[in-house]
């Protein structure tokens, strides 16, 4: 056995084997990540197979454009990360630091857009399981030009200027009616007039989407909260991975600044890159599965 390099621990044959086993370890970790998300994708598949109407209805409250924007942001971050690994391999320290910073910036942008989306959902009670408040949407104005912010402010005023005749006393004050079920039904009926999130910010309800022949897009099915439970679980777990990835990138950025990497020693950059690309791959699947349900 040849032992040319004193830095290689005794349980490795060579530096190459050490690097290869580290990479293999990372790939095994990525495999467990796939299995972790696999459970949630399984839940998604079962609910979508059994209740497609819930998914058709729920998806219109997700902003397709913000989702596409986030997909592109993550792809860009993956590209800068792959380029950063290349720079690390070639020992270009300056470029490595710039590219890692750009990757961090893209990750922050992704989380920022995600925060905007979460805030919209939170504001309108489109939340998971029992947190789901269908009645939060009952008094939203349907007049053209109403933004989501206006919708939220209109919620506080009891009488909307162009109040819906269908939302009677049961909808405006659910507790006085005594029966929660009645209030919930009224709220559900009222929600049919709410423009989908994808079209609302522009203020114009696109006739293509809302007046489509598909009845499932207008009449809300039961248990819409199931869609939002799955949405928050999948995107939330993915968001946690983005945060973990940002911490890891920050760590190698600090090490790069100290000049710890060279063309012979870039393993940490390589491994963090692999992790970051996996986060991107998961989003590549989440985007069409949640935002682009047809």
């Amino acid at each position: 056995m040849s032992r040319e390099d004193p830095r290689v621990p005794h349980h490795f044959e060579s530096a190459e084997q050490q690097t290869e086993s580290a990479r293999l370890g990372m790939w095994v970790f990525l495999a467990t990540e796939i299995l972790l998300f696999g459970g949630l994708f399984c839940a998604y598949s079962v609910y979508r197979a059994n209740h497609p109407d819930v998914f058709y209805y729920g998806t219109q409250f997700l902003d397709k454009h913000l989702g596409a924007l986030n997909t592109m942001v993550l792809i860009c971050s993956s590209f800068t990360m792959a380029w950063a690994v290349r720079c690390a391999q070639l020992g270009e320290r300056r470029a490595l630091m710039v590219l890692l910073s750009m990757t961090l910036l893209c990750a922050a942008l992704f989380l920022g857009v995600k925060a905007i989306e979460y805030r919209q959902k939170w504001k309108h009670g489109l939340l998971w399981a029992r947190k789901f408040r269908a009645e939060a949407l009952e008094r939203s104005p349907t007049k053209a030009g109403a933004t989501w912010a206006e919708t939220a402010s209109a919620k506080t005023t009891m009488a909307a200027p162009d109040g819906q005749p269908t939302s009677g006393p049961a909808a405006s004050n659910p507790l006085t009616t005594g029966t929660k079920a009645l209030a919930a039904t009224a709220a559900f009926e009222d929600r049919t007039s709410i423009p989908p999130a994808g079209t609302a910010p522009a203020g114009v309800v696109s006739g293509k989407k809302s007046s489509a022949a598909k009845p499932s897009e207008r009449t809300p099915p039961e248990n819409v909260q199931v869609f939002f439970s799955i949405y928050f679980l999948l995107t939330g777990l993915h968001g946690l991975h983005v945060i973990a990835g940002m911490l890891a990138i920050g760590w190698i950025l600090r090490r790069a600044r100290r000049g710890e990497f060279s063309s012979g020693n870039f393993l940490a950059v390589d491994l963090v890159g692999l992790y970051w690309h996996l986060v991107d791959i998961i989003w590549i699947y989440l985007f069409p599965l949640l935002y682009l349900i047809h």
């Binding site: 390099d5 060579s14 530096a15 190459e16 690097t19 290869e20 290349r86 391999q89 070639l90 020992g91 063309s263 012979g264 020693n265 870039f266 393993l267 390589d270």
Partner: peptide, 11 residues
């Protein structure tokens, strides 16, 4: 460059 490092990475 690749021959320098032990792992012979592909750039």
């Amino acid at each position: 460059k690749a021959s320098h490092s032990a792992a012979r990475p592909h750039v």
